[in-house]
Nucleic acid binder design. Sequence first.
DNA 1: ACAATCTCTACTGAGTCAATAGAGATTATA
DNA 2: TATAATCTCTATTGACTCAGTAGAGATTGT
Lengths: 133, 133
Amino acid sequence: MLHLAGHSTTESVQIADIAEGANVPRKFLEQILVELKRRGLVHSVRGRHGGYLLGREPKAISFAEIIRIIDGPLALSPCASRTAYRRCEDCVDETTCAIRKSLVDVRNSTARILEQHSLADALADRRKIKPGA
Amino acid sequence: MLHLAGHSTTESVQIADIAEGANVPRKFLEQILVELKRRGLVHSVRGRHGGYLLGREPKAISFAEIIRIIDGPLALSPCASRTAYRRCEDCVDETTCAIRKSLVDVRNSTARILEQHSLADALADRRKIKPGA
DNA sequence: ACAATCTCTACTGAGTCAATAGAGATTATA
DNA sequence: TATAATCTCTATTGACTCAGTAGAGATTGT
């Protein structure tokens, strides 16, 4: 995603280029991109000079969103998740579960941090440190 | 652990009792307890009237410590972990990795929250809500 | 027509997780 | 001393996930 963010929002980049830049197998990257596409974070251009490009401006794509798609919900337990809530099977009483309270705290702070960081921020950081690259 | 914290620090509780209270298979619980013992969080008493008891006072056992033993490192990626640091294999330059910065932020906030919560806190919470239980 | 690319589905191998199984060591008690 | 109750240890299972592989099919530029 950082690689794509480094290019314009109008010209597409080919899988092979991204794979080389990110140092991951092409076919493996493909599966991730298909999923990202399904969720609207990237668009694809088919055919001869096809490729991928960001679906929105870099500043409108948060780390939280990407991580949720690739790694699943942020919460440590489904019962503490907001986007993928699921009650624990053997939970006796959720409202008095002292463990869940902490897990919800953790989820909230994690979500806050990851939602504040966008691709644009990451790109700016990188440029700040390595102006030449 | 909450079950154990509910008992005195001197008398042991049998696996079967904890298993029933926590609604998990006895043999499965056993493996967790053995690991917790290896790390010093609980002690065991062998033989006829054996069982388990907390290795320290409830207020000296944090959620962070328990979760690290049962679930592994808190960080989302090994490169952001303090207790189990490991460099990413295909990392080009760790100091300029914009993703890692966010992951370290998340780890730190997670660790702060989970280290502040102890078994004693959880026990107090539970009693506050359900004074009779 | 053809070549380059994305698209889709299925598969593999290693690893993890919850759970099971059983033999062995330790201790209280009769 | 024998026995029963308990923890201890190691191995194994089955379902699942994760990274990666494979190949046929659809789409588009030339």
